[in-house]
Design a protein around this nucleic acid. Structure first.
Lengths: 197, 197, 197, 197
DNA sequence: GATGAATGAGTGTTCATTCAT
DNA sequence: CATGAATGAACACTCATTCAT
């Protein structure tokens, strides 16, 4: 028997994260298209009605899940971020952090991929998301100013630094490649050569 | 000119392509998730039942659409393919062809993106698709042998040569960037620097 | 290669009986409920449209099939009908003829069973059917008059003489029983004991 | 009296029986073939979706209905079952009980008839059904052992004792006969003469 | 006569969401 | 807060039938 005290919030938070976990797992297993609210509820061991206590509707749940993932990603990326280090070292750290994330959270990655390609993504406050990644933008700016990397639009830089990482770790896109230490190192090499001056 | 055989009303090739067109358009407008058979039928100006004359089921329709797009892409890519030219020139031609395609067929691109991230993609005969792109694999092989590009797995090369292109042209992923001549040129530069030895 | 001469009717009749055969076979295999026109057409190797040349609609096809079966049954029953013989011998012949029919045409029997329990059966001209069985009615009348069998309504007599036969040969109702010579003989014995005075 | 548990809205047993009632009524009126889920739902005054709360699918609904009917039948049959009485009296009681049931539940009877001839019947656990009728089997065994009735397979006995009853009370098969007291008595007479030694 | 294409109306089933408890 | 029941609308798909050829 579990006793809950008044004002205790643990239960709620646990349920909320349980729902998110279920959402990501299901999207990963059966795809975005056939992922229904009742299936998520069943996977999270709650009633479909309960889901609507924590989220306004399905849309809200999916968007929240996406934002959660993006926050997790940004937090992981920023690990050991030390602006005192040389530019390339910081980028490398960022990059390896990113690879860590996508490899250890393939399901998160796949969810994000499907989400960003769906019309739901239009509902996300892009500004809000970008805020989490602003240190990276600043870093790239510094790299450009210090003439270490090419002076091209940010989107171009990220398309060559970070998106190949997503692609390589997505089993739907690259099923054959084995992402061992050597490949990851090579991969950073290519990314670096792409952007460096 | 349509030839009718005795006692037969032929399948209308135009209708088939009209259904594909509708599928791509709708996926582009409302997303893969909410793209239903009846909506596609309405957009194609046919009855939902008619759709099942041309395609075994929804799955078959989506897979066929994907394959059609991939074929179109491969055909566009190979335009002016001249193996006599220097490696970098061929790659550049390929690359510009690719950019032409994704820019002029943003809807195709978006469909393909959503499709590859859905469980439907598991139904595609990957071998069949790869066949269309084998000249590119051969070319990359040659580049490696001639020590022009880095000796890394093919998936890595394509992840840096072709996927950034997809990303940049996908309005869901890169909404802000303006893909003018200069940016495209810069973009090829990054791709080339990434892979070249 | 089959050559058909002008005015030859064989082809038509063959097709007609082929459709009936297909109908009975399919009803037997997948049941009355899921037996669709297009499935019948496929089984009969004709176009669904062709079916409508021979029969006004599905209803007409089913009713015609039923009547055909009933005619076959009555013809089989009347085999070696010799009113000069003693009453019991005639009945026994009838009865064994009947068992022959239901055992050798289990599919016909099953179709008839499903048909008679469906609303389609209301469309059959019962009078027309009864006409084929009038010799049996006359025979029973004679049996009553000659005080050989009980003086009860005809329906009661047939319910005890002929319906048990249908039941026993219907695998859906009696799956376990083995209808060998001995059982059939016993079965006639029971039928006879039921009706005899 | 309905008891509601905390945080729960209980399944409505009345609704379940209402759906069964609607199913039987509709099958009776429009036949097994055209009896669709939506029509049943409308007749039962519930949404088609509600039906799927109480039954897994259409198949489950039909099978459940059939089992319910068979249970009702067996309960009715066993009324006043007194193994102390003489064999013929017990059988007569059984038999009249049976006639009571089929006459007062013509719709049930017709449903069962259509069901047993459909492929759905294959889904029924025959063993489970037979269990309800085991007292009858025991009784017949006793009758054989005491040399009161003929020593023939059980299926044969039931085919002559009980199936004629079904036939006679089925308006689709016997429309003309009037089942008054006299006819029913005659009918039992025939059944008894059929099986008695 | 015979065909395959074409379809509106229907099938069984699941959906996202609300409601009474 | 949390629930399972309840639902209208939608889903993918099949139906019996007609039509131009």
């Amino acid at each position: 028997m579990i006793i809950y005290f008044r004002g205790m919030r643990n239960k709620d938070e646990h349920k909320k994260s349980e729902i998110i976990r279920a959402t990501v797992k299901l999207v990963n297993e059966i795809g975005f298209v056939s992922c229904s609210v009742s299936k998520i509820a069943k996977e999270a061991n709650v009633s479909p009605a309960t889901l609507y206590i924590y989220y306004k509707n399905k849309e809200d749940l999916l968007v929240s899940t996406y934002i959660e993932i993006k926050q997790n990603l940004s937090e992981t990326l920023m690990k050991n971020f030390d602006s005192a280090k040389p530019f390339r070292d910081i980028l490398k750290t960022l990059w390896y952090n990113g690879f860590d994330f996508v490899l250890n959270n393939k399901d998160y990655n796949q969810f994000a991929e499907q989400f960003s390609n769906s019309p739901y993504s239009d509902l996300v406050d892009k500004k809000e998301i970008e805020k989490h990644f602003s240190p990276i933008i600043s870093l790239l700016k510094r790299g450009i100013d210090q003439k270490i990397i090419k002076d091209v639009p940010f989107d171009l830089l990220t398309a060559f630094i970070f998106y190949p990482m997503m692609t390589l770790s997505n089993p739907k896109l690259c099923s054959s490649i084995k992402l061992d230490k050597k490949t990851i190192a090579q991969s950073f090499n290519l990314a670096w050569d792409a952007v460096k001056l």
